[in-house]
Each structure stands twice: as C-alpha cells, then as structure tokens.
Simulated assay, not measured.
Amino acid sequence: MTELRFTKGHGTGNDFVLVADPDGRRPLAPSEVARLCDRRFGIGADGLLRAVRTDADPEGQARADGDDQVVWFMDYRNADGSVAEMCGNGIRVFTAFLLAEGLAELPPGGSLPIATRGGVVVVQRVAAGFAADLGRWSLEPVETTVRVRALEVARPGLSITVPNPHVVVALATAAELDGADLSAAPELDPVPAAGANVELVHPADPLVADGVGRIRMRVHERGSGETLSCGTGAAAAALAARFWAGPSAPSEWRVTVPGGELGVRMFPAEDGEHVALSGPAELVYSGVVALPDASTASTR
C-alpha cells in the first residue's frame, strides 16, 4: 500500500481531491481516481486535480508548448476517472493549492500560467478570489436536441466549446429549472463524440441590471453527474444567454449556481474573443489515504 497525501477543496461547491506530484512519480489510474472521488467509499469529490511539473510529464510538456514560464500542469480527471480538457472551478482551486503548498507564487498584479489539456490558462488574483482566462471559445454548428427527466418535451440546445464541450438549454420558467431531474444524464441527439456537459439556464428578471447580465444555472457534468457548480459551464451558459439576447446584450454576467455565484466576462484578444471566469476557491482540509501500489494498476 502507498500513502497518498491529499487536500480537499472546492469552488462554489464544485469539489475536488488535490494531489501534489511535482516529479510525476505517482500517476493515478482511472480506477484509483474513481475510488478517491467516491462519496461513500472514498474521500468524495466531483473530480481530482493532480499537480505535476510540466517538465516531469510528457503531456504537460506538450501542453506547455516550450514556454518555460508554464511550470505546472493541471492533470484533471472527472469523478469516474475519465479525462477532461479543463475545469473552470478546478483551475482556481488548483491555484489556491499551489500557493498553499509553496509550489508557486502569485503576487498582486501578477499572473500564473497553468498548462491544461484545453491549453494554457492564465490565472490572476481578484477581489472574489481568482480569475482565469479560459481562452477563445467557439459556437459549434450543430443543432442538438436535449431530453431531460421531468421536462415534458425535448428542448433545443446550443453547443459551445470553452474549451470543454457544452450544450446549453434555455428554460421558460424557474419552476422548470428547479424541477428538472438531473440525477440521470440528459439524452442528446445527436450524441457528441466526446460527450458534453449540459447546462439548464433561466434568466433573472430583469435579465440585465446595471449593465450586468444575470442568469441561474444547473448542470449535469459528463463523468461526474449533477454538480453544485461548473466553471466552464457557467461561461458557456453566459455566452449562450448573450447569443440569445442579441447584439445589445452585455459582455459581463453573473451566473448563480446551487453552490454560489460566478462572474463571466467576454473580451477581445489577438486570436479572437476570450472568456474569463472569476469566483472563490477554498481549501477545506488535508489528510492521508492508503492506495494500492501503482505497479498493481494501469495508469491510463
């Protein structure tokens, strides 16, 4: 058995197991990740964040793309052990973890680039906690029909990549949002090749106040189920709401999720429009857990 030191953290209720593996000596198999994230037999979490130096991990090195300023790779796994491109709440909690462990510094006015499977994400300190530039987003040219338990008819969904794949569904009433059953994965037609997170969205009344758009959201994450929050999902939901609202819609949004509130901001960049996500990050506790030796399990 191997003792694995971990920290538990969350961003607006989206919770994670965090593990420091600077030298890349203890990659985790999907079965190990699933065991750690199990809420009955493990620590319990929506996903796992492994901190490894980019020069100690082939994938991290590739994602850093030769930039020696990108020291850390966020190896993110869903609760079932599957690989995900990025995690908007996770990147903030990951940053808080690096700082708490003395693995990185982020002075006022500074920025911290982190390699992810969705590209390099730049994180900054803000009043609400941390803000992350999620990079360029894209509206996918596909019409997706979404069927959700407890909603009488299937609904059209807007497909957005940021950088995870999302399908966003607008609901007419708050009662529909509250009554939707997300205990099972929504049915998508056509089914995306890599799967997708599904966001259900209802606008606030009024939709825009003091130049800021406001929506409520619930989410079912692929590989994790319904979660209290999804960072890239909040960004996708705000982008969809702006798209539906038309050209006069604002570029700053507040997204209320069951676990709290997140800020989303769209802004121009050299390679196209980017979207930034801001919100809190909290480290809850640390501990040690026993796992079978790595040699007894596959790492992928």
Rank of each mutant, 00 (worst) to 15 (best):
residue 1 M to I: 06
residue 1 M to S: 14
residue 10 H to M: 08
residue 17 V to D: 01
residue 20 A to Y: 06
residue 22 P to G: 08
residue 29 A to G: 15
residue 31 S to C: 03
residue 40 R to I: 00
residue 45 A to F: 03
residue 47 G to F: 01
residue 55 D to I: 12
residue 59 E to R: 15
residue 60 G to K: 03
residue 60 G to T: 05
residue 62 A to E: 14
residue 72 W to R: 03
residue 73 F to Y: 15
residue 75 D to L: 10
residue 78 N to D: 11
residue 83 V to Q: 14
residue 86 M to I: 05
residue 87 C to R: 01
residue 88 G to I: 11
residue 90 G to K: 03
residue 102 G to V: 07
residue 106 L to R: 04
residue 112 L to T: 03
residue 122 V to D: 07
residue 124 Q to W: 01
residue 128 A to M: 00
residue 131 A to D: 06
residue 131 A to W: 01
residue 134 L to K: 04
residue 136 R to T: 15
residue 145 T to I: 14
residue 147 R to H: 10
residue 148 V to L: 07
residue 149 R to D: 13
residue 157 G to M: 09
residue 158 L to F: 00
residue 163 P to K: 04
residue 168 V to Y: 01
residue 174 A to N: 08
residue 175 A to E: 15
residue 175 A to M: 04
residue 179 G to Q: 13
residue 179 G to V: 04
residue 181 D to E: 12
residue 183 S to D: 15
residue 201 V to K: 02
residue 206 P to Q: 09
residue 216 R to Y: 12
residue 219 V to C: 13
residue 221 E to Y: 06
residue 225 G to D: 09
residue 225 G to Y: 06
residue 229 S to T: 07
residue 247 P to V: 09
residue 248 S to E: 13
residue 248 S to P: 00
residue 250 P to R: 05
residue 252 E to V: 15
residue 255 V to R: 01
residue 258 P to M: 07
residue 260 G to D: 09
residue 263 G to M: 08
residue 272 G to E: 14
residue 275 V to G: 05
residue 275 V to W: 03
residue 282 E to H: 15
residue 284 V to L: 12
residue 292 P to A: 12
residue 298 S to F: 10
